[in-house]
């Protein structure tokens, strides 16, 4: 898939899977958001799993980009699930007062994809 940034976005069935494995500074984070939205448009994906197992820290700026990406994806018809957040990242975000309430979460990629499948089976948008 053609991308501006260097975070790969894979197609898994009717869903997209993207694994963030590099330090997200602002420009990369914005390019990532753009790439995801373009990919949803091009593939007509109904679901998106964002895997952040590799992120050792997520500040409020990056957390917001991730949360916004989920909301934008929803507007384009794709449901987003954020997976693999580390314990220390979750604790830090909550302590800072940003619990990313708008984003659905799962433990890992398998769980995230299974949840998207379940949604599809239930016929939810």
């Amino acid at each position: 898939m053609s991308q501006r940034g260097n975070i790969p976005i894979l197609r898994v069935g009717s869903n997209l899977l993207t694994t963030i494995h590099i330090d997200l500074h602002d420009t990369i984070a914005e390019a990532f958001q753009e790439d995801v939205l373009v990919a949803i448009k091009n593939t007509g994906a109904k679901g998106l799993v964002i895997d952040i197992t590799g992120l050792e820290e997520v500040d409020t700026y990056v957390a917001r980009i991730l949360a916004d990406t989920g909301r934008m994806a929803a507007l384009m018809g794709a449901h987003t699930i954020l997976v693999g957040m580390r314990a220390e990242v979750a604790a830090t975000l909550v302590r800072m007062g940003f619990a990313m309430d708008t984003v659905e979460t799962a433990l890992d990629v398998d769980d995230g994809l299974a949840m998207l499948q379940a949604r599809k089976a239930l016929g939810r948008k």
Partner: peptide, 27 residues
């Protein structure tokens, strides 16, 4: 942020304290 992380790990900060410090540095 990376320098803070390296130092925190070297000095025996646990994962939670390290994340707190480096996130603060990032902000």
């Amino acid at each position: 942020r990376r320098k803070a992380r390296m130092l925190a790990q070297e000095r025996g900060f646990d994962a939670f304290a390290t994340a707190a410090l480096t996130t603060a540095a990032s902000e």
